[in-house]
Design a protein around this nucleic acid. Structure first.
Lengths: 219, 219
DNA sequence: TTGTTGATTTCGCAA
DNA sequence: TTGCGAAGTCAACAA
């Protein structure tokens, strides 16, 4: 990894065109050739960048980064304050816990959050337009399609609606009820879901994780 | 901006929990207090980070970054290879060109891409569920709602469908036709649009920009 | 390779 | 502040 502090202007031409006037910035050149242009603020997103795979061609005062699609990042260097390199080696990578797939795993073995006496038909129940997160049978034997989100927004309700429309054309399944389950449900999403007869269920990830190794695991 | 090269392990607890085993990494502390943990690869996204506003509390061998929501980023430093600071000043910021709003501006004055003799009613035509990109009258005086996307996907068709449903309840407007206009339209989006009687129109940004200062500007 | 979906999405605008 | 839609979204995973 190479770190350069320099006064520079930057031009990107690719999916859009973008221009950065001259200023002091941090340039990061990673081992895979990718280049990031960071300012002293904003967020983790660079002001401008080129993702790998790409190639850096270096001339005095001028860097040109190109990728296969013909996009270019042109960096004009006016003053170099520092320029150093360090070998970081390969990173062992990140372990995550608490994303949507975990919610799905947990809810699949804790169907009592949806209702008593429910049975799981299968996770990732296939349909021609994509998999339904959970397909269940309620206590009365009725089919229920469950869409799980970390944050429930309007798109998720639309997605579930499409599934339900399709599933209800199958006489072996119909009628299929819908449940929209999420850690957080936006008011507009709740309104739309309710309007379409879809039940909303709030999930408490911490509580669900807390019970994951209790008696339910015995089944 | 402070740049630290260090062997460290990182734990984030917040919207999810994440752990990074010990390795040599780049730590960036920005002027606003935000912290980025970068490895020598991946993309422009850091392995781990804390967005501003947040506070860095520094003890020997241990950094703790906290934000208002109670999320924490704990960095355990085992070996510091380098530690340097530089004042970059305020960045003048990025100028972009070629995003969706430009497509909308261009199409608004080049309605002939949709049909001859069309008239613009208004851009950002308001509805209770959000603005329609363009509202037009075709040569016969019929209302047409236009949804513009850079990349046309299924969500955009759903969005336009919601608008049309609502607009067609207004007897002063109805019947309202729909047009889905984009630089690129995904096959599934095209199928869904067509199925719903929505016409798809491909936009050529380069060509439209090329004519932006021609005779059409005179009107 | 292409398509679909999730993301600690981030970012910008407007109500 | 909140909500909503765009993004050079990126990235992971399946077909």
């Amino acid at each position: 990894m190479r770190l350069v502090i320099a006064r520079c202007s930057v031009d990107y031409v690719g999916r859009l065109t973008a221009h950065l006037p001259s200023a002091l910035r941090l340039l990061i050149v990673k081992a895979d050739g990718s280049v990031l242009v960071h300012s002293d603020g904003g967020s983790y997103k660079p002001l401008n960048w080129m993702s790998p795979p790409c190639k850096l061609s270096e001339q005095p005062g001028q860097w040109t980064v190109t990728n296969k699609a013909g996009e270019t990042l042109a960096i004009t260097l006016e003053e170099i304050v520092s320029d150093s390199s360090v070998d970081l080696g390969v990173d062992p990578g990140l372990k995550k816990d608490g994303v949507e797939s975990h919610l799905q795993e947990l809810l699949a073995v804790q169907l009592h959050h949806l209702g008593d006496g429910w049975r799981l038909v299968r996770r990732e129940f296939p349909t021609p337009i994509g998999p339904v997160d959970l397909m269940c049978k309620d206590a009365a034997g009725g089919s229920v399609a469950v869409e799980i989100k970390r944050r429930g927004e309007i798109d998720g309700v639309e997605q579930l609606t499409r599934y339900l429309e399709l599933l209800n054309r199958d006489p072996l399944l119909a009628p299929v009820q819908g449940i929209f389950a999420a850690q957080e449900i936006k008011p507009q999403a709740r309104v739309l879901a309710t309007d379409r007869g879809i039940r909303c269920v709030l999930l408490d990830y911490e509580a669900m994780r807390g019970t994951e190794d209790d008696s339910l695991r015995l089944f």
